[in-house]
Amino acid sequence: MKIVKNILCVLFALMFINAGLDKFFHYMPVPPADEATTKLYEAIGTISWLMPLVGTVEVVGGLLFLFPKTRALAALIILPVMVGILVHTATFFPSGLLIVILMFVVLLWVIASNWNRYKILIN
């Protein structure tokens, strides 16, 4: 089970690193979007610091997620971004929801398996 978890975590981390780097270098193709989605992207684009911030969080979180020792911290860093991805995908691209839900499950699995580390933060 540990090997499966490590493989899933490495894949999860690589997806976040790739998504974060794309926010800086724009190398992945952008799928066609409807008018509402295009307006949303234009509005987000007016906040010049937002996408670099999200990209940085994705890259740093992804790099930390690669290593079991820092995975608990990475899960907390990535959680808000992952919730945003989940809501955005459910709203605008429901056809891609399966992969996002699978990624969210991996993230929740990591959080659950590190729960003892988080207890200090709660107490």
Results as ranks from 00 to 15, higher is better:
44 I>K: 01
37 T>L: 07
43 A>G: 08
96 G>R: 03
79 L>P: 05
96 G>F: 09
75 A>D: 11
66 L>E: 02
55 G>Y: 02
32 P>H: 12
7 I>C: 10
109 W>I: 11
82 M>K: 00
45 G>I: 01
71 R>Y: 03
1 M>C: 04
98 L>E: 13
49 W>D: 01
31 P>K: 06
59 V>G: 07
30 V>A: 03
25 F>G: 04
41 Y>P: 00
22 D>P: 07
52 P>Q: 12
52 P>Y: 12
104 F>A: 14
16 F>I: 01
95 S>A: 14
51 M>G: 02
98 L>S: 11
16 F>G: 01
110 V>S: 02
122 I>R: 11
115 W>R: 11
34 D>S: 09
111 I>Q: 02
54 V>M: 14
105 V>C: 04
30 V>K: 05
22 D>Y: 11
4 V>L: 15
112 A>W: 15
67 F>E: 06
53 L>R: 01
2 K>R: 12
63 L>R: 04
31 P>Y: 03
43 A>K: 11
32 P>E: 11
29 P>S: 13
96 G>P: 02
103 M>Y: 07
117 R>K: 15
36 A>I: 03
22 D>G: 14
55 G>N: 06
59 V>Q: 10
51 M>Q: 14
88 H>I: 08
36 A>K: 06
13 A>F: 04
13 A>R: 00
50 L>M: 12
2 K>T: 10
14 L>T: 08
52 P>I: 04
45 G>N: 03
20 G>V: 02
109 W>Q: 08
109 W>C: 10
99 I>L: 11
92 F>V: 09
28 M>P: 00
6 N>S: 15
37 T>P: 00
82 M>N: 08
53 L>N: 02
47 I>F: 11
34 D>W: 05
84 G>L: 04
76 L>F: 05
85 I>T: 11
43 A>C: 03
16 F>N: 12
79 L>F: 15
48 S>W: 10
87 V>W: 11
123 N>R: 13
85 I>V: 14
94 P>S: 13
28 M>D: 04
46 T>F: 01
112 A>H: 12
99 I>V: 10
61 G>T: 09
114 N>Y: 04
83 V>W: 07
90 A>G: 14
54 V>T: 11
9 C>I: 02
21 L>N: 03
64 L>F: 15
106 V>H: 03
81 V>Y: 01
30 V>Y: 00
84 G>I: 13
113 S>L: 05
45 G>V: 00
113 S>A: 05
26 H>M: 09
80 P>H: 05
101 I>D: 12
100 V>A: 10
1 M>I: 12
70 T>N: 05
24 F>K: 09
76 L>V: 14
78 I>A: 08
9 C>V: 13
59 V>F: 09
68 P>I: 08
55 G>C: 12
59 V>I: 15
44 I>W: 01
89 T>H: 05
35 E>Q: 08
33 A>C: 03
101 I>C: 08
35 E>D: 05
97 L>Q: 06
85 I>Y: 10
89 T>N: 09
25 F>M: 13
15 M>Q: 04
7 I>K: 14
11 L>I: 15
73 L>N: 02
20 G>M: 00
90 A>L: 13
71 R>G: 04
72 A>I: 04
71 R>F: 05
65 F>Y: 14
110 V>G: 00
99 I>D: 07
26 H>L: 08
73 L>V: 12
20 G>F: 07
104 F>Q: 02
58 E>V: 09
35 E>F: 03
50 L>V: 08
76 L>N: 08
30 V>S: 06
68 P>E: 12
106 V>W: 04
5 K>H: 09
8 L>S: 13
44 I>D: 02
